[in-house]
Each structure stands twice: as structure tokens, then as C-alpha cells.
Nucleic acid binder design. Sequence first.
RNA 1: GGAGAGGUGGCCGAGCGGUUUAAGGCGCACGCUUGGAAAGCGUGUGUAGGCUUAUACCCUACCGAGGGUUCGAAUCCCUCCCUCUCCGCCA
Length: 428
Amino acid sequence: MLDQNLFINDYEETKRRLTRKRVPVEQIEEIRQAVLDRKTLVGEVDGLRAEVNEKSKQVGVLYQQGRKDEAEELKASVPELKKKLEAKEKEYKEVDDKRLQLLLRVPNLPDDDCPDGFTEDCNVVVRMEGYNESDYEGKEYKPHWEIGEELGVLDAERAAKLSGSMFALLRGDGARLHRALIQFALSINGDRNEEIIPPHFVRPEMMMGTGTLPKFADDAYRFRDDDLWAIPTGEVPLTNLHAGEILSIEELPKRYMAYTVCFRREAGSAGKETRGMQRLHEFHKVELVRLCTPETVKDEYELLISDAERPLKLLGLPYRVLDLCGGDVTFSSTRVHDLEVYSPGTKSWLEVSSIGIFSDFQTRRGNSRFRRSEKDKPELLHSLNGSGLAAPRVWAAVVEHGYQPDGSIRIPEVLVPFMGGQTEIRRS
RNA sequence: GGAGAGGUGGCCGAGCGGUUUAAGGCGCACGCUUGGAAAGCGUGUGUAGGCUUAUACCCUACCGAGGGUUCGAAUCCCUCCCUCUCCGCCA
């Protein structure tokens, strides 16, 4: 959520930046008006409440002095005042609720460093790592689902039998490779990130805290009987870990990583680039989250991007780094870099990490704060996150790149220790 | 799942319908004192919003959360959440 004062104190600038995310001007104006109206009404309500409080206090004093008649008289004069107060309160609540609902649905301001544009065509490829187009010319690559089926390590048919489309079932060495990837990612990122195993079901406030609710409710799974939501990413519990707390500056930055299962309904994306391990309702991921001061957020961002790149580099997978344009930057973020690994089997780039800065957008919702010193007022933390390793897509890339002419899959060297020394996958 | 107890400021803990603008203590900060320190004494010590040049004053809200009763609620009523103890169940 944005600071509502931006709509009053820095209106033109806020409008300019929101327009980059295609927020209609009318909507921005509506918020400004709601914020202003609320401010007026707060003053009026507070004034009336003060009057009621004062009179009630007097009633008490009069009773204690035994001046009962005067007390009764004063008491009788309150209901009229309260009627006025209640009417005003009702008006206030309506405006306040409108203001909140509007604010909750407005995206974060894009950073001016984001490239211009509104669609993904405007995203800028900043770097290519380990990719040469010529490497793939004249060669035939199989998609991972074919290889997986051939070797008996990916069983799409049974996954569908059990759960439907967009679910995967790995078996044997395929499952082992998947586990190795997770272990690998956790172990290389363990140097500066504290490992967390969070709950996978969270309260609605937590989904609200990351900006997933209310806007993206249709994309998540909800347990209706318990009013809990299945996390779509480890970002949700990690970002909210310190919700409602005030941390001291010495504890910062907080650098967390969590291996979790992620649950996504993927409403509306059925049939679209969903074969194999590309898009699943349920997948495993190592997520990295940072909470820090506003001053250090840019440095943390660079560090986070490099952390997210580490596994790809070490695995020897070709990937590219995208700087997302203002219009394509996600709802809660100010700046986003995507990492996309090249999938020769599908001749496409698969997004394997989206690293974003959220400024105080998420932490304002969750009220996660820090204090510079005992004398200073609490300030909102800044949050960032990115995938440390999105297992299915990296699994797909490893399988496609490692596929050998003899029908086996070569295991990247760095993974061998996590595979118990196994260097290849063959049909058993 | 059943029975019971309880959630009050950074912490402990009183209050159970009206000078509570939340007692008292601990902790913390500043000052006095001292050669220096401890002790002692004094002062201060939350969050958010409103009004303001102002982190001053004043006003409003907050005693787990949300509703309700009342002129007035930390205190009474209802719903929910959480913690603890015992029983049951269970990997």
C-alpha cells in the first residue's frame, strides 16, 4: 500500500509515476479526494467525541459531589450530541473504507530507473550469460517432458490421473534430481541467508501483507472452513515474519531463505505453455527475502540478484537478465529484474526468478518497522525478494541441456554430490 | 475434540462502571550528587491520527481482535483469535 499522503503532498509526481503502470487518472483523483475527505471527517468526529467525553466526565464529577439533579440534566443533553456523532462516524467509516479499498488496489510506484513501456516487449535484456544462438543451430533438442517420459522419470499421465492437468509426478532419478536441486540451492545460499521452514497455510492478513490479496484472490487456494490460504510463494510467510514488530537497526538487514511448496490456481492460463514442468498448480521453490533500511535497499537488490543468479551460473545453464519496463513491473514492486533460463527443448526462455524491490509497500500493510535508535520514531522497513531456485523449470532446463545423444542425462558437476555421486540418469 | 485458567505499556504486575490523563515496580534516558562510580534523589519514558513552523501544547483512538450495553467501559455482555494446564487423539 502506498503512503496516502503522497496523494496530497506529492500529487503530480505520484500521478506521473502511477500512469506508467497504466493506472487511470480518474482513479488517482478519486483516491486523493477520499484521503482529503477522510482527513476532514476525522477532525469533526474527534471534536464531537471530545465533547461527549467532557460531558460524561462532568456527570461523574457531579454525582460524586452529590449534585444529582445537575448530573441528570447534563446526562439528558448527551443523546442529541451522540446522534450527531453517530451520523458523522457513519459518514467517516464510509469514506475511510472507500479510501482503504482504493489504496489496497493501487500498485506501487515504478522506479524511474525502469525502462519505459507497458508490455513485455519493452522489457530490456540487460545481460546474456552463457548463451550463444549458434550453439543451438542445426541441433535437435527434445522438450523435457519427452525426455522425462522416455527415461521414466516424469510421469505426466499418472499426475493427471491423480490430480488433473498442471500437476507433475516425478519418479526415481527424476525425483532425486529435483531433491538435489533444492538441496543445492539451500546449501549455496546458506552463507548469508537464514533458513526458515514456515507454515504453508497463512491467515488472510498475510496474503494482504504481500499484496496478493485483495487483488489476486482468484489465483490462490483458500481453505474455506478455516479461512486460511495456501501460500503461492515463500515470499508470503517470510515477508510477514516481522509484521507488527519493531526491529532494532542492529538486526538489519534480515536475509531469509525458505524452501516451500507453492500453490497457484493459475486461473485463466490453462493450455498456455503448460506442458511438462513449465506451469504447475503446485511446485517447489527456494525463496529469498530481505528486510532492510531504505538506505541499503539498492545494495541489497544487487546482492539479491547475484544470489538468484548463483545457481544458474554454477549449473552452467544459459540465462538472460531482463529489466522489466514500468508497465510490466508487478503490482507490489518498484523495480523488477527477471532471470530467464533458455530452454532448448521448447526454444523459449523460461522465467525462473523474479527479483523485486517493494520499498515500504508491503511492510506498510503488515506494519513491519525498525528503529534507528531509542530516541527515533519507528520507520517502515523495506522489503525485497526473488526466487533462489524455482525447481520445476530449472529441472526442465537441466534435463534438456544435459540430454546426451545416447539417451542419457548428464548431471551438472555441482549437483553430483547432491545426487550421491551419480553423474548421469539412464533408463533403468 | 473435551474441561479449566488467562491475555493490561520494553518487561513484571494492580485495577473489575466515573479525579486512571492505566497505580506500583523493574528496565532505559537525562539531570543532581561524586575525584570517578555505585547507591540515593529528581525528571522523563508507547503507537497511530488530528491541529500546528514544531519531535511543544491541546484533542482523538488504542488494556488480544471485532461488535454491543451505558451519559461514561481496561472493567459488564456477545463473537472470534491466541497462550497455558489437564484429558482424549495422533506422525
